[in-house]
Design a protein around this nucleic acid. Sequence first.
DNA 1: GCTTAGGATTGG
Length: 828
Amino acid sequence: MTEPWQVAKRKRVFEPSGSCFRRAATRESRASGNILGARCYRTTAAPLSGVTAVMPVHVVTDPTTLVPPHLQRLPIPDLTRSSTTTDTCVKGQVVQKCSLVALEDDDYLLRTVIQEHEDHQTLLPGPKSIIAILFGPLAKDFSQAVNQGDLLVLAGFTVSRSPTAKKDGLHPCNLQLDGGEAHVYVYPAPAPAPAPAPALGPITSTISARPTAPKAKTPKPKYTYVALKDLKAGMVVNVYGVVTFFKQPFQTKGTDYCSTLKITDQSNVKLGCTVFSDKLEDHPQIYKIGDIIRFHRVKIKPFNDSINALTTLGFSILTFDGAMGSPIVPRTSSSKFHFTDEDKRTVERLRAWATSQSAIPPAPAVPLSSVRPKTFFDLTCQLLAKSVMDSTCTLLKVWDGTMCANPLLNLFVQPEALEGSMAITGGRDNLVANVLVYDNHVEVAQGLKPGSYLRIYNLHALTQSTDPPPGDGAGHLAFHLHGGTAYGRGIRVLPDDSPDLQELKRSLDSLQRDPNDSSLVEVWCTPPQSPEAETEHSVTERTCDHALRCVTLAYVKEATPPGVFHVRAQLRSYQPERIHQALKLHCPKCRELQEVPDEVAIASLFQQGMGHCSGAWAHTGYLDSDVPGRGISVHLPNSAVRGEDQLVFVEGATLGEMYLMSRGQRNMVPVRSSDGRMTLLDLSAPFLFQDLKQHYGCKRCSQVKYVDPDAEGTRQMDVSGIAEALGVSPLQYVFLMKLELEDGSGSLDALLWNDAEGFFRAPASDAAANQELQDWVQQTMDKLCPPGGSLEERPWLDLCLRSYTTEETETVCYQIFDTVTRGPTSDV
DNA sequence: GCTTAGGATTGG
């Protein structure tokens, strides 16, 4: 049986030297900025505008400087497919001119045969005649302006393989002329007798329109694009589409590389497309599903009750990022392409349409931290090092800045067999994925340079069954890029400035901020294997009873809420930094959260409460006040139960006096007069003082009554009983802190809130009243996150996190639950 | 020498 990858192995090897040369030539032509033809011509020909000003075919009869003098002439017999075509030209006589072929929508094709001009002809070996194929308006102009026998200078062409060379005995290459850079300069054959052609070098000629010359203003080449639903077999068309499936170029059984892809457009028709070219740079540069592609000159052919698009002679392809708002920059290796504002709008329209389509499958790209065993996925990563394992397998060591939740297989390779370096990882093994690349992908893999950014398509995550500890059930993860091209399997190098690399680069940057951090290295090298082992080195301890596997913060962030996770992280920072600021008041009824009022504000409320005395109750005593001329009234309800829990109403005291008086007292309620009756102060002040504790009520939920001395009083002398009797809805003290956690895979803000008292093992209401307890909590935080300490001094925290979405803003939040600190004195 | 592929995994 012959499998695709076995076939591929028998293929001709893509000549690396040739490809390098070609790529270099392209770069050079871009960098030079010297666009052959058009620009030079427009300058020199300005006075002649109206004759052939925007024409790519120039008719030359008289000595002026029409043909750019910098063009280097290349003899036709010397032409090869790796010839530099920038600033070069060929010169030859038209020995055959075929008729103009009309393609769809004002597109044309014309084939002609050019024979090397006689000044070189006799001197050089090799085929002297070459086929030139002209496209578009150039072909049309040529058919009108050029006759057999004319002498031509051709510039701005590309050199391709001639598929008919064996049959026609002509040059093994052909010339293709298409687009704004292609130019044909014509020296018409003199009608009566041949005159010596002007020598090349600085050609001095002048233009004269001859009878067959085309009309003065030819419109710029305008391409029209056919909606996919309107395609019919036999058409040669230009189309746009959104990529819904693609394969990287692979070698065929024939002479070419093949790219297969599927596209769709607003007409909701899908079209399979096949690109054949032996030049990799002619193939589309598709990075992911959703990219937008533009084809010029594809032929629609019937296949299996449907139609497919196939590249034809003179095809060209541009690819664009499909994301809304990202720069519209065509991906192509060619510096010769048409691209207009209309193209831009087309791309924008397709992007907008595609964004709203569920028919376009989501790209299966995931970070290393989210990879699950037995799945196939696309990995965007940086190549660190590679090593040839055998003839059918190459190992790539890659990372993406996130830490895999599963232990990763680390294949050891002798340093001398490894190309590239792992030094940058600082030994943090669980960050490095070992990718085994097989069969047809080996060729691509061997051309990869360490440091480059890659996307590997359809990577298979497999747990290594031969792993030593079979008991723990978690084999080490290895990644396989199987042979063949099914499901788009392949590797592509992403350009360094690709928008798809931003996230990856951020992750890698944060990893490398502190590459020498030994504690990180230690932890990463010894991934926790059991909960027992974990807690030994942690300053916190989980108290939950679920046995979840420890995951990375990156994994937590990827997961859809709600969820429960066990993580191991360090505390980078926390807010607020002062513990007393972390104490808040919370209403269990309306769930409002508020700051504890500051003493200045409370003191002022006490001042305002010093009005007319509400009058003596049966049990009223008077004390001297700090405030001159005022007295403090102390009232006891008529039916008050005597004893320790005695409820005492205090009127006319300052806040300071209230503190003093309530010391050692169980229940003191500050009151004021209102309309001759006794009521509570504004609820921004505590409604109840219990020794060192102050209790507050919710302004929104309380319905404060006048305090009636004849009331039965409260039966229950606890906070809620007293509050109820007073019509107060009591507030609870709570801790609220935001902890910035960090674990190498990323960082995450988690709240200490509902379960904060458990975390600190301290009731918030006690902490509010007790400076020592606040100090204890502060010391605990200092232990978790030493002030001014470096990352390596920070201990690791085992935490149980919950993710959830808030009702109001629908933002994702994380809270720490079921976790306790070991306290500031623990010796970890 | 006018072909080739025409999506569709599971493995080393």
